[in-house]
């Protein structure tokens, strides 16, 4: 094969120019006014990005990670019949099932849910099933967060009643843990929840019209079976939210601590985040307090 050197030289230059042009046009297209959603987030919803590869001072940039939760599925508990499942509120590889992501919802998202969750082979079958990228709806400080708060308070109230019984196994330390959980939910935990998913963006936009409370982002869902035998149920887990790292431009750096830590150990800040036409976020404003 004899490739013309001149063609390669100009081809390389054209490739560099074209790649950068495509990226910049994409950014401009995403940030066309008005944005799809504008959420006012705080240190509760924006945490430090996990950067295992950098030692102190090696990376001068700052990115914030969106802390997104799902309402946990209530499973049979120790004392009262219902209890939030392990990892229920986390979004990520270890995500628990979300109650609104049941088998009928999974079917509308394109999952094959023909096998009954009670089937002996169901757990392995759905474990091996590949996840899907879908559109997720994020809700900021809305009804779902209120439910999570009330569920935590109700759990404490039940535990207090149980603790009052002489034969109770619930001791002071278990009650204190639950009170801590309520305090965490009230003051520190993220108020940003994934509340719905779909494939049709226009339909989701019609359903969630409040652009200051709801934002649509891309994310990933995988099926999972909760329970065994007759009580087994099929749910979905939100395993990823795309674009969950938001770069902090230099002009906003003064408002945000250099290395934000956990919400309890840092100064409060508020960041106005816009989500654009391509569902990619960017920071519009940031200030302390």
């Amino acid at each position: 094969m004899r490739v013309s050197t001149k063609w390669l030289v100009w081809g390389g230059a054209l490739l560099l120019a074209l790649t950068n042009a495509v990226m910049l046009v994409g950014v401009a297209s995403n940030r066309r006014s008005p944005p799809e959603s504008v959420l006012k987030l705080t240190e509760r919803e924006l945490g430090p990005q996990w950067d295992w590869m950098w030692q102190s001072g090696e990376n001068s940039g700052l990115s914030l990670e969106l802390r997104v939760r799902t309402e946990p599925v209530l499973t049979p508990g120790i004392y009262d019949g219902t209890w939030p499942s392990l990892y229920g509120g986390v979004v990520g590889s270890y995500a628990g099932a979300a109650p609104w992501l049941d088998s009928s919802k999974l079917a509308t998202l394109g999952f094959d849910v023909a096998m009954l969750p009670g089937d002996n082979a169901a757990a392995e079958h759905y474990e091996r099933m590949l996840g899907r990228d879908v559109l997720l709806v994020l809700e900021l400080d809305g009804p779902v967060r209120q439910r999570a708060l009330e569920a935590a308070r109700a759990a404490v109230a039940r535990l207090e009643n149980l603790a009052a019984e002489p034969t109770s196994k619930c001791r002071a330390d278990c009650l204190r843990n639950s009170l801590d959980a309520v305090s965490q939910e009230e003051r520190l935990a993220s108020r940003l929840f994934v509340v719905d998913a779909g494939l049709d963006r226009a339909a989701l936009q019609r359903k969630y019209t409040d652009s200051a409370r709801y934002a649509i982002v891309r994310g990933h869902i995988e099926p999972t079976v909760i329970g065994e035998g007759f009580s087994a149920r099929l749910y979905g887990r939100v395993t990823a939210v795309r674009c969950d790292n938001i770069n902090v431009p230099m002009k906003f750096r003064d408002a945000i601590p250099a290395r934000p830590g956990t919400p309890s150990s840092q100064e409060p800040f508020q960041v106005t985040v816009a989500f654009g036409r391509r569902l990619e976020p960017w920071i519009l404003a940031a200030h302390t307090g």
Binding site: G12, I246, N247
Partner: peptide, 24 residues
């Protein structure tokens, strides 16, 4: 250039970035 532009503007990570890298 491509990966940092993605980080600066919070562009959704995509396999399409592999194409210009491969071509270059």
């Amino acid at each position: 250039n491509v990966s940092m532009m993605g980080a600066v503007f919070n562009i959704t990570p995509s396999d399409k970035a592999l194409l210009p890298w491969a071509a270059y």
